[in-house]
Design a protein around this nucleic acid. Structure first.
Length: 659
DNA sequence: CCTCAGGTCTTTTAGACAGCATGTC
DNA sequence: CTAAAAGACCTGAGG
C-alpha cells in the first residue's frame, strides 16, 4: 500500500514522500485496514521501530478534530513534538511539567503531546481542551502494568472516554502477552505483528560462542578477556556499535572505563565537548571514557551530558555505550549489537530476574533501520545459566499486562480526584467510574470495593472529603487534587505546616525537611560514614524541625535520608555548585537536578496548602479570640503567614538554581 | 618495613511523572 | 528486610 492511496490531504502525502516514506510497512497496512485512518479504534502491538509513529499520525491527521498524543516520558514528548511539528500546517503543543506556561494555548492546537500525568492534571483542573479531543493516541500502553504509573493511565483513559465517548482511541504497545485484553477494554481492533524493518538475531553467549536462535553459532575468541569485552570487540571488528545493559550505575561506569582502556576507538572531540563541565566525579569519568570512544549512560548524568552521549552515539562518534535500563525505555538510541550482561535487578527484596518485556525492549534497540544490515541481541551467560536464560528470554512470550489499580496508594489519589473533579458524587457514581477502568475489565469492579471504602474513610478522616449521604470533596480535598499530590502528602503537609506555624524558628531547612518527608518525595540514601554526623546535626538543630528528633517516632535511619536530602537541597538553593554537592554528599548532578525539581514542585503545592490553612486560621483566630475573650484566656499565636513566606522564599531560591 | 595474596566483613544496589497564581496601562 | 558482588579492611607470609 502506497502513502498516496491513503485518505490524507496532499500536503501530508508530499511531506511523507519527502521523508522517504512512500509505501507502508506490513503492520501499518494492517492498521489502515483496521481503520486507523477512518476514525476506528485500534490497538497496535508492534515491536520498536516498526513504524508506530506513522500509524499515530494517520489517526491524528484523519481525525475529525484535535488530537492528543500521550507519552510516558518528557523526553519522548519532546521527541514527538519535534516530529509532529514538521507536518505542514499543523499546530502542535507540548504539555509536560517542565514546559510551564501557556496552559490555555492548547485550544488552538491540532495535536497536543502530553505526559499521562499532565493530561490527568489538566482534567482535574478543568482544562477545556481535553474535552474537545476527537482522537487520543496512547504510546506505550503496556505501562498499564507499571505499579507507580499504570493506574493513572487507566483512570485517565477512562475519564477521557467519559468526556467524549465517541472519540477515537489508538493505543500503541510493545509486544505483550495479552494485547487482546487491552483491545477488548478499549473496544478497539487489535493489530499484532512481530515484523521489523531490520532483522533481529537473538542469541546467548556462552563458552566462547554466541548461539543464535536461528541455529547460527558464532565463535568469539575471548582470549582471557571478560565475555562482554570480547563481544564488544567482535562487534567493532564488524564495524558495528554496541550497547551494553548492566544493572547498576557503578557497573556502567566501571565497564565503560575498562572498555575505554582496551583502546578500540577514540573520540577526543566528544571528550572535549564533555570536558569543560566535567567537574564532578561522574563528569570526569565520562570525559575520560569518551577519550577511548566509550561512554556510560544513567540517571546520574547531567541532562547536557546525557544528550551529548545520546547524540554522539547516534552519530557513531562513540562506539560503545554502557547503560542502565534508562536507555531501554527512553529515547531511541539503536546499535548494531545489544549486549544484555545483567538480567537481574535489585528490588529492595533481593535480586529479581528482569521481566521478559523489559529484556525484549533492550533487544529491540538492536539494529539501526536503514543503516545496519541486521541487529544482534546477545545475552551473556554466567556459569551454567545459558539454557535457563535462553528459555526465559529468547523467543519467550512476554508477561501479560496486569492492572495495578487495586492498591491503597493509587486508589486514594484517584478516588479523591474523581470526586473532586466532578466525575462522581456518590459511591454508586464512583463505582461506575471505576467500572470503566482496565482493572474492572480484567478482574471485576467489585474487587475494588473494600479498598475503596477504606480509602474513603481515610479521605474523610483527613478532611478531604465528606460522606454525608453522597460524596463531596472539601476545599482542602479539591486543592490537594488540583495541585496533584498524593492525599497522604496533603495530610502530611497540613500537619507539618500546622506545627511549623506554632514554631519559634522556621528556616529554609525546616521547610525543605517538611517537603522531603512527604510521600511524594524520593530521598537519598545515607552512607554509613554520614549517619553519625547527620544525627549530630539533627540534634543541634532540633528546634528547626517539625518533628521531635530526640524522641523520634518511626524509622530514624530513613529520616536521616530525608534530612540529608533536605540539607543537600538547602546547600543547592544557597548556591552550592554540583561539584560541591558531589563532594559533600556523594550525589551525582543528575540526581541533584531531579531532587530539586521534585522539591520545587512539592513546595508549590505546600505553598498553596499553607495559604489555605492561613485563610482558615484567620477565621479560627477570630473564633479563638472571641472564645478567649469569653474565657478571658490566651490567644492563638500560630503564625501561618510567615510560614507561607518562608515556603515561597525557599521555592524561589530553588527554582532560580534551575539554570 | 613493605608488598601482596587471600580471606572476611561491610557496604551498596534503576528510574522519573506532577503546579498555583496573576497582573498591566 | 531481602541477596549478590564490589570494596574496605585485615592478616600473614615472603622479600
Amino acid at each position: 500500500m502506497e502513502v498516496r492511496e491513503l485518505p490524507l490531504e496532499d500536503r501530508f502525502v508530499e511531506h511523507f514522500e519527502e521523508k522517504g516514506i512512500e509505501s507502508l510497512y506490513p503492520p501499518q497496512v494492517a492498521a489502515v485496514e483496521a481503520g486507523v485512518a477512518d476514525d476506528q479504534r485500534v490497538v497496535a502491538a508492534l515491536p520498536t521501530a516498526s513504524g508506530k509513529t506513522l500509524v499515530a499520525q494517520l489517526a491524528m491527521l484523519t481525525a475529525d478534530g484535535p488530537a492528543l498524543y500521550v507519552v510516558p516520558l518528557r523526553a519522548l514528548a519532546t521527541e514527538k513534538y519535534e516530529t509532529f511539528s514538521e507536518l505542514p500546517g499543523v499546530s502542535v503543543g507540548v504539555a509536560t511539567g517542565d514546559y510551564d506556561g501557556d496552559d490555555d494555548g492548547f485550544e488552538d492546537d491540532d495535536i497536543v503531546v502530553a505526559t499521562c500525568e499532565k493530561v490527568d492534571s489538566a482534567i482535574r483542573n478543568g482544562a477545556e481542551w481535553v474535552e474537545r479531543l476527537a482522537c487520543v493516541v496512547v504510546d506505550e500502553v503496556h505501562l498499564l502494568d507499571a505499579r507507580g504509573r499504570g493506574p493513572t493511565l487507566e483512570v485517565t483513559l477512562a475519564k477521557l472516554q467519559r468526556l467524549r465517548p465517541d472519540q477515537q482511541i489508538v493505543a500503541l504497545s510493545a509486544t505483550v502477552g495479552n494485547a487482546d485484553e487491552i483491545a477488548d477494554w478499549l473496544d478497539a481492533e487489535l493489530v499484532q505483528s512481530t515484523w521489523r524493518p531490520v532483522d533481529l538475531k537473538t542469541g546467548v553467549y556462552d563458552d566462547g560462542a554466541i548461539a543464535f536462535e536461528d541455529g547460527e553459532n558464532r565463535r568469539i575468541d575471548a582470549d582471557d578477556r571478560p565475555p562482554t569485552t570480547a563481544l564488544v570487540a567482535d562487534a567493532l571488528d564488524e564495524g558495528g556499535q554496541s550497547l551494553v545493559f548492566v544493572n547498576s550505575r557503578r557497573e556502567a561506569q566501571q565497564l565503560a572505563a575498562e572498555l575505554a582502556d582496551e583502546g578500540f576507538a577514540a573520540a577526543p572531540e566528544i571528550a572535549e565537548e564533555i570536558g569543560p563541565d566535567a567537574t564532578t566525579s561522574t563528569g570526569e569519568a565520562l570525559a575520560s571514557a569518551a577519550k577511548g570512544g566509550v561512554a556510560f549512560h544513567h540517571a546520574g548524568l547531567r541532562a547536557e551530558h546525557r544528550s551529548i552521549v545520546e547524540n554522539a552515539f547516534r552519530e557513531r562518534e562513540l562506539r560503545v555505550l554502557c547503560a542502565t535500563p534508562t536507555l531501554a525505555a527512553g529515547v531511541n538510541v539503536p546499535a548494531r549489537r545489544v549486549i544484555v550482561r545483567d538480567t537481574e535487578r535489585f528490588t529492595g527484596e533481593g535480586y529479581d530476574p528482569l521481566p521478559v518485556l523489559e529484556v525484549h525492549q533492550m533487544f529491540g534497540r538492536a539494529g539501526r533501520p536503514g543503516l545496519d544490515p541486521y541487529g544482534e541481541a546477545v545475552l551473556v551467560a554466567t556459569g551454567e545459566n545459558a539454557d535457563s536464560l535462553r528459555e526465559r528470554y529468547v523467543g519467550a512470550e512476554p508477561e501479560p499486562v496486569e492492572s495495578k489499580l487495586a492498591a491503597r496508594e493509587p486508589l486514594r489519589t484517584h478516588v479523591l480526584a474523581t470526586v473532586a473533579g466532578g466525575f462522581a458524587d456518590s459511591r454508586e457514581g464512583l463505582r461506575d467510574v471505576l467500572a470503566s477502568t482496565f482493572f474492572a475489565h480484567q478482574r471485576d469492579e467489585s474487587e475494588l470495593r473494600d479498598l475503596t471504602d477504606e480509602v474513603l474513610a481515610y479521605l474523610d478522616a483527613t478532611g478531604m472529603l465528606r460522606r454525608d449521604g453522597g460524596l463531596a470533596a472539601t476545599d482542602l480535598g479539591r486543592l490537594v487534587s488540583r495541585v496533584y499530590v498524593d492525599p497522604l502528602t496533603g495530610a502530611e503537609v497540613v500537619e507539618a505546616v500546622e506545627t511549623a506555624a506554632a514554631m519559634e524558628r522556621v528556616t529554609a531547612l525546616t521547610i525543605l525537611e517538611l517537603v522531603c518527608d512527604t510521600e511524594d518525595m524520593t530521598t537519598q540514601h545515607v552512607r554509613n560514614d554520614e549517619a553519625g554526623r547527620l544525627s549530630e546535626f539533627a540534634m543541634r538543630r532540633e528546634d528547626q524541625f517539625t518533628k521531635s528528633v530526640s524522641e523520634f517516632e518511626g524509622n530514624f535511619q530513613s529520616w536521616l535520608g530525608t534530612l540529608k536530602t533536605a540539607r543537600l537541597l538547602a546547600d543547592w538553593a544557597d548556591g552550592a555548585d554540583a561539584e560541591t554537592i558531589d563532594e559533600r554528599y556523594g550525589v551525582a548532578p543528575g540526581d541533584v537536578r531531579r531532587l530539586a525539581e521534585s522539591a520545587a514542585w512539592l513546595l508549590s503545592a505546600t505553598e498553596v496548602i499553607a495559604e489555605h490553612l492561613a485563610d482558615g486560621a484567620v477565621g479560627r483566630d477570630a473564633d479563638a479570640e472571641s472564645d478567649a475573650a469569653a474565657d478571658g484566656g490566651e490567644t492563638a499565636d500560630a503564625d501561618y503567614e510567615s510560614v507561607v513566606d518562608r515556603i515561597r522564599e525557599t521555592r524561589e531560591a530553588l527554582v532560580e538554581r534551575e539554570d
